[in-house]
Structure formats: structure tokens, C-alpha cells
């Protein structure tokens, strides 16, 4: 990915107001966020619905969402520490990473990443809920993955999107998972703008939480535990 950006940047210093070292930083850090927000929730849930093991989970005094989210955090943490972080360090030595403009920006970045992760998990859980109706794992997880990659800008930042695609991505919540925290990190926003982003993230968190609760309530009514 870094080589691709290097090739693309060969004759230019800035493209859409972003330079090469910023792009490298973006690629590296966004894959770090990506490896942490990576989620199989939708897939796991869909599978559990399909073979009926969801019943096994629901007879325990646990929140179904937190059961999955904590499993996810566990496996992502492992993945991040064992695989992503060593690669990161190697890349850091080879290419170097831009340091954020100031400590406040860095703190805002962390806050934004944290909110982004909450959004990512909620979104994944919401997609998982659809599995209760569709009862098929493949499409749900494929769709989730596609949304997360395309609209979150985890591979190509939204700056480089054509206008029409960018306006779709702007209307959707996914960009707050990877793209917006990275933009804060790279100093693309003023402090006021950064605070605005965080505010919007909080609003999205609340809205998504409400959607999730509503859907979950609906699912409980329609829940069918298959097999046996």
C-alpha cells in the first residue's frame, strides 16, 4: 500500500492538500485502527442464528451484545499485539510516521478513535441483528465488510473520492471509525472543527445505540431458534 502511494506521489508534493509522508502515516495508523475495529460479530451472529446456538448464549445471564463485543476486543487485542504492532514498528523504522501537531490534537485523536471504535462495534452488532431475519452468514458479513472498507476510508482516504461517492460517505456514519480520527491526527482540521467531529461522533453513538435497542427489541419478538 505504501509503495502504491509512493508511486502515485512520484511527481507531486501535494495531492488534494495532503503530502506523501501524511499518506504513509494515514496508511499505517488506519491499519492499526482497522486491526482493532475489525469485526466478525455479524458473521458469528449470523452463524449462531443459522445453527441455533444463539439459544445457548441467550440462556445465560449475559448481554448478547457485550458477549460478542468482549470476545471481539479480546481477539483483536491479541491480533494487534502479535501481528499489527510488530509490523507497525518495522514500518515506523523504515518509513517514519508524522507526529501530531500538538498534544491536544493527539488527545483529541485518541478520544475520536475511542468513539469510533464504539461506533464500529455498534454498527457491526446492528448488521449482525439483520442476520436474525436473513439467517445467512455470508451476505451479512460481506456487506458489513464492504461498508466498513468503502465508507470508512480505511484503505483510501475520503479526500481522493469522487464528489458523489464522497457525499454518500459523508452522510453515513462509517467515516467516523477510521477516516475522521486520522484527519484529526494529521492536522487536517482546526481545533474547533475537531471538537465538532467529536461532538458529531457522540451524537452518532447515541443514535446508533437507539437504533440498536430498537432493532434488538424487534428481534426478540421475531426470534426463532432453529433446530431441535
Amino acid at each position: 500500500m505504501i509503495s502504491v502511494w509512493q508511486a502515485l506521489y512520484q511527481n507531486k508534493e501535494f495531492v488534494n492538500g495532503v503530502n506523501l509522508s501524511q499518506m504513509i502515516t494515514y496508511t499505517l495508523l488506519s491499519s492499526l485502527i482497522g486491526s482493532f475495529s475489525r469485526s466478525m460479530i455479524a458473521y458469528t451472529m449470523a452463524n449462531q442464528v443459522r445453527d441455533g446456538t444463539v439459544g445457548n448464549e441467550l440462556v445465560k445471564p449475559l448481554s448478547y451484545k457485550w458477549l460478542h463485543v468482549s470476545q471481539e476486543i479480546g481477539s483483536n487485542l491479541f491480533f494487534t499485539l502479535i501481528i499489527t504492532l510488530p509490523v507497525m514498528i518495522l514500518m515506523f523504522i523504515l518509513y517514519g510516521i508524522d507526529i501530531p501537531t500538538g498534544p491536544l490534537e493527539f488527545i483529541l485523536f485518541l478520544v475520536s478513535v475511542f468513539l469510533g471504535l464504539i461506533m464500529a462495534w455498534t454498527l457491526n452488532f446492528i448488521f449482525g441483528i439483520f442476520a436474525f431475519w436473513l439467517k445467512t452468514p455470508e451476505y451479512v458479513s460481506f456487506f458489513t465488510f464492504a461498508c466498513m472498507t468503502l465508507f470508512a476510508g480505511s484503505i483510501v482516504p475520503l479526500w481522493f473520492y469522487p464528489d458523489w461517492l464522497r457525499s454518500i460517505a459523508t452522510a453515513l456514519p462509517f467515516r467516523f471509525v477510521t477516516f475522521e480520527p486520522m484527519a484529526i491526527y494529521l492536522g487536517q482540521y482546526s481545533l474547533t472543527e475537531s471538537f465538532q467531529i467529536i461532538f458529531i461522533q457522540i451524537v452518532w453513538c447515541i443514535a446508533l445505540y437507539a437504533v440498536e435497542k430498537l432493532l434488538w427489541h424487534g428481534v426478540q419478538r421475531h426470534l426463532v431458534i432453529q433446530g431441535g
Partner: peptide
């Protein structure tokens, strides 16, 4: 049984 255990409405 599923209704008694609360996983079906």
C-alpha cells in the same frame, strides 16, 4: 422449554 427459559416470546 425455550419459552420457559426466556429465549422465545
Amino acid at each position: 422449554i425455550k419459552m420457559l427459559s426466556g429465549i422465545l416470546m
